[in-house]
Structures are given as C-alpha cells and as structure tokens.
C-alpha cells in the first residue's frame, strides 16, 4: 500500500534579483526585478508503508521544498501530493497529527524544559493515551539508554543529545511517517551509529515510514533500502542501493603509491602529479570519465572497466614511473552519488 504519492509535482518560486554595488542598491530601492525558479520540476514518486527512503541531492536541489509539500506547509504549483490518501496542504493539522519531523540543527523542543516535561506537553498536544505513551517509552528504554537525558533541559544538552531527544519526540505519538532532515549533521561517530541503530529499531518495531534527507552517505548505507536522488528539481534516480552499485559495478578505484614513506610526500606536489596523470591517461585511453584524485599520499584513479583494462592502465603508469604499492577498491556510495551529481544525467 502506498503511504506517500507524488503525482507530477511542480513548485515554482519568485526570486528577487539584487543588483550589485551601491548604485545597484539605490536602484533596488525604486524598482525590483524578479525571475522564476522551478525548485521542484515534475516529480512523481510512490513510497510504501515501512520503507526507509534516502532523499538525496546537492544543496538547492529541491529536497526541502519536496519535504515541505509532503508535510503540508507548502502547496505545489501543479500536480498532487498524497499522504495517507489525503493532500497534506489542504489540511495541515490533520496531517501533522500523523507525522513526525526532525531537523538536525533546529530543536523543536522547549528550550528550557527538561525532556520529560517536553514529552508530557507533546503527549497532550498529540492526545496520546496513557497506555500508548507508556508503551512507547518502554520501547524507547528497550532500544536506547535515555536515563541521563530525562531530567535535563534541552538548553543544557550536547548537540548529539539534543538530536536524539528530537528524534524521540518525533516518534512519540507513533506517526505513520517521519521526516528526518540531516539528523546526524555535526555528530561524532559513536553518536551517529547510536542514532542510526535507534531509527532502524523503531522502523522495524512500528513499521514507520521514514524519509531521510542527508549529505552523509554513512546514514544512507546504514538505513536506507531505497534512495531517490534529485537535482535541479528533477528526479535522477529512484531505486535501491544495490542497483545503484550494480550500475556502477564496473567502476573501480585503483590506488597507487609512488613512495615508500607516504608521509614524506607533500599534498601540493601530489596534486600536480595527479592532474598531470589525469591528462596523460585521458589522452592515451578511450574512457573519458577517468578521474584522478589525491587521498592522503595515495593517488586514486577512478575508471570504468568496460572502457579500459586495468592491466593496461597499470602498465602505462609503470612504464613512466616506479609504483611502490597498489590497491584496488570498489566504488563507495559516496563516490557514486558524487558522480551522479556531477554528471547530472538521468539514469
């Protein structure tokens, strides 16, 4: 059953062109000049109950605009959004009863209230029954240790604790959809994995649908079965992660080290070397998407095995310079996404 459905959704904004300099500032006082921008351009999407969907895209791709339409605070210019069969922007309050929202850096909790008091207020707002409330808290206790948060006012919490509290609050009324916007931004590694585990646990226990927007591929790898990538308002990719990797399955990263002691090479000279090598490789081999980059003393060559042979590339480099060490790696999700953003092609 589809819990969220987007049908040819489009959203445009009017934007003011500011002129430059003092003279421009004076001109702006008297006349204003607008242009139109499509933040979301004809996107269709179906999301099933219980799915965790990674909603990805570079900054300004239209992610938050889509989320705003799904949460009911923004109306599409054309097309239709359905959440639980209803258009959220037609009835924001009814929709809000059944969703949870978390912004990584904007706490929605009462700044000066201890967490337990915030929860009591939320219980009233969402009209959660005593039993459901208690059940949910028990579930929380079974998944994560929250004792040390319980009596603390939000203003005294660390960023990690605050984010965790916000996530707890978002699930408190057992919503059918939870939107997580950069939930792990700025957090340390252990807090990140703690939060990822917690979200996964809730999703499997309550079959909550989760829409996750993030720039952190660690979150995506840990949580999402499916990813949707958009850029410039258009959908570029919509499938599971395995297929994404398969699509780039023939891509390999060859890591080469030219020196015994990695530490003695300085970054600038390596960088020059990488640029030079990239030029040479592109001249000598047919694969036009070969890129060379630097990674802590190593030089990374990204190549598509369908186009070029690994051995040939290795021999080519060997003929010019002595290779001290070599490694082969599968392409990471992060690199895949980066390639999609850079390419901008619809897959």
């Amino acid at each position: 059953m589809e819990i969220i459905e987007l049908i040819n959704v489009k959203r445009e904004f009017k934007i003011l062109n500011r002129r430059e300099g003092i003279a421009g500032g004076i001109k702006d006082l008297f006349s204003r000049d607008y242009r139109y921008l499509s933040a979301v351009d004809d996107i269709s999407l179906k999301i099933k109950k219980g799915e965790i969907v990674g909603y990805l895209g570079p900054n300004g791709a239209g992610k938050s605009t889509t989320i705003k339409m799904m949460t009911g605070i923004l109306e599409p210019t054309s097309g239709k959004v359905l959440v639980n069969g209803k258009e959220p922007y037609r009835n924001r309050i009814e929709n809000a009863q059944d969703i949870g929202v978390v912004f990584g850096q904007r706490s929605q909790l009462w700044w000066s209230l201890p967490l337990k008091e915030s929860f009591k207020v939320l219980k009233e707002i969402y009209q959660v029954s005593d039993k459901d409330y208690k059940d949910m808290l028990d579930l929380y206790m079974s998944l994560i240790d929250i004792k040390n948060l319980w009596d603390k006012p939000v203003r005294q919490m660390s960023l990690g604790q605050r984010t965790l509290s916000d996530i707890l609050a978002a699930f408190l009324h057992n919503p059918s959809v939870v939107y997580l916007d950069e939930p792990t931004i700025g957090l340390d590694v252990s807090m990140k994995s703690k939060i990822q585990e917690f979200i996964k646990g809730l999703n499997s226990q309550k079959a909550t649908t989760i829409i996750l927007t993030t720039h952190d591929m660690g979150d995506v790898d840990a949580l999402c079965n499916r990813i949707v990538i958009i850029d410039k308002g258009k959908k570029l990719y919509d499938d599971n992660i395995e297929n994404l990797h398969k699509m780039f399955g023939m891509y390999r990263i060859m890591k080469i080290c030219f020196s015994k002691d990695v530490g003695e090479l300085d970054y600038d000279s390596l960088k020059d070397k990488a640029a030079e090598l990239e030029k040479e490789l592109q001249e000598n081999f047919s694969g036009d998407d070969m890129t060379v980059s630097v990674d802590e003393g190593w030089i990374d060559i990204l190549m598509n095995e369908e186009d070029v042979s690994l051995m040939e590339v290795m021999n080519f480099i060997q003929s010019k310079q002595h290779i001290y060490n070599i490694k082969l790696e599968e392409i990471s999700t992060e690199k895949v996404i980066k390639k999609i953003y850079e390419g901008g092609t619809i897959l």
Partner: peptide, 9 residues
Amino acid sequence: GIMDKLNFR
C-alpha cells in the same frame, strides 16, 4: 554599512 542600509528600503 551603507550598503546594508540601502538593502532595507
């Protein structure tokens, strides 16, 4: 400072 001010007609 001047430009900031002008921005806020």
